[in-house]
């Protein structure tokens, strides 16, 4: 199993930390992991993205231009990375603020209204956890007990009391995932 993921959005949306939680959880589950961020001026208020690879084998390149799954949180990132999803791969995005929606017909496209849900639940900081939940619904690469361990490892201990709330958001994310476009199964 190798899962190659790009997570992209604005700086401050929790893009890098979502990737970090995934990487930590993967490591706790004894997988090989890599977490390669974009770094530099764009992190200070512009777009941010991170490539996360989870694998049962030694990871070759931490730097990729084709992904199994793209998790997209703003319009710029959608424009940039829609074409980078492997054929038959998955694109997950939050439609709030998106004006030009994805159009590819050779990938599976899902939406998760995480920003709305986070506002509704009054848990805006948990925005990225709803997204993470939606991803895990589609790709259950991490088992829940290791997800918790990943949260414990990546959050500073002063925030550990928030872990149950984060786990709830992950579960809620699984529920609010919607299929937008699914590649039709060919008729035999």
């Amino acid at each position: 199993m190798t899962e190659e993921i790009i997570i992209a959005g604005f700086g401050g949306q929790g893009v890098l930390s979502m990737g970090k939680i995934l990487a930590y959880a993967g490591m706790m589950q004894n997988k090989e992991v890599s977490w390669m961020p974009s770094y530099g001026p764009e992190m200070r208020g512009g777009t941010a993205n991170v490539t996360v690879i989870l694998s049962d084998e030694r990871i070759s390149s931490p730097i990729l231009n084709k992904f199994d799954t793209a998790i997209i949180l703003n319009q710029q990132s959608l424009d940039k990375f829609e074409s980078s999803v492997k054929k038959g791969g998955i694109l997950i995005y939050d439609p709030s603020g998106i004006t030009t929606h994805p159009t590819r017909t050779d990938i599976n496209i899902y939406t998760v209204e995480a920003a709305d849900e986070a506002a509704k639940q009054n848990f805006k900081k948990g925005f990225n956890m709803y997204i993470l939940g939606a991803f895990l619904k589609l790709k259950p690469v991490i088992e829940p007990e290791f997800m918790r361990k990943g949260l414990e490892k990546s959050l500073p201990s002063r925030h550990h009391h928030l872990i149950p709330e984060n786990e709830k958001a992950i579960e809620r994310g699984k529920e609010i995932l919607k299929a937008k476009y699914i590649i039709p199964t060919p008729l035999n």
């Binding site: 970090k20 990487a23 992991v33 890599s34 977490w35 390669m36 961020p37 770094y39 931490p62 730097i63």
Partner: peptide, 10 residues
């Protein structure tokens, strides 16, 4: 280089 320095692995 910047990539090896900035990326996280086990």
């Amino acid at each position: 280089d910047g990539a090896i320095g900035q990326m996280m692995e086990k």
